[in-house]
């Protein structure tokens, strides 16, 4: 069945792959972006070229008013959001000793506050639909920890606790709330690491390579589908066997 899907941070990397996947699965996709308008429109064009339906929607998802108006725009164009993918995320890596308050706050606001704001905004529509899928992106950093990422890992671990709580709140209403925790995936975010570190990481992965954004999107596609109707409050780790 075709649903309305919102992918936050859908213009690049994993978000882009998720948007393309959900569109390929027959859903109408709202591609949220904060600043990368050109990339977001690129994703929309790619979806439309393949016969899908999509729309780029701008909003800083850490801002309550911006989130409210984004949901208004999506409802006007597509209808109520049935599938919410909380993907928007940033890194501001540094050792804790050197990590400034701004680096902490920015990461928590974009990665965690956005999950709360968007999930809350989507909930009314999902209750009315009597169907819903909330899928949030955590990270292997949030599960195993990663030096230099105290802020990022904290935000990503918090998403897991948040999702388990909300899963219990709304399970009886046919709304599932799950988490996907990617390992090292080839994106702009991991490109920053440099090829030496990337090779080192690949050696620690059971499957011997970094992951592709499409491989994360496939997990999201599953959790968004009716096949996953009996899966809630879970964290699906897609890391090629990095954290075993």
């Amino acid at each position: 069945m075709s649903r309305v899907a919102l992918v936050t941070g859908g213009s690049r990397g994993i978000g882009r792959a998720i948007a393309l996947r959900l569109a390929a699965d027959g859903h109408q996709v709202a591609v949220n972006y904060a600043a990368s308008a050109a990339s977001a429109h690129d994703v929309v064009e790619a979806i439309v070229a393949r016969g899908g339906t999509a729309r780029a929607v701008q909003a800083d998802v850490g801002d309550a008013d911006a989130v409210a108006s984004m949901f208004g725009e999506i409802e006007d164009h597509f209808g109520r959001v049935g599938i919410l993918v909380n993907n928007a995320g940033i890194t501001r890596d540094d050792l804790l000793l050197r990590m400034g308050v701004d680096a902490w706050d920015e990461v928590i606001e974009t990665n965690l506050r956005s999950v709360y704001l968007c999930s809350r905004a989507a909930m009314r529509g999902m209750l009315r639909l009597k169907w819903g899928r909330i899928i949030s992106m955590s990270s292997i950093s949030g599960i195993s920890g990663n030096p230099g990422q105290a802020n990022y890992a904290a935000s990503k671990a918090a998403i897991i606790g948040f999702s388990k709580s909300v899963a219990r709140e709304v399970g009886s209403r046919n709304i599932t709330v799950n988490v996907v925790a990617p390992g090292f995936i080839e994106t702009d975010m991991t490109d920053k690491l440099g090829s030496e570190i990337a090779e080192e990481v690949a050696q620690r992965v059971a499957l011997g390579r970094l992951g592709r954004p499409e491989e994360i999107a496939a997990a999201v596609g599953y959790l968004a589908s009716d096949d996953a109707a009996y899966v809630t409050g879970q964290t699906l780790v897609v890391d090629g066997g990095l954290a075993l």
Partner: peptide
Amino acid sequence: VDSLGVVELLMALED
């Protein structure tokens, strides 16, 4: 009616 049910009822009233 649980607390979520009350919210749902109020949404139905609004509609």
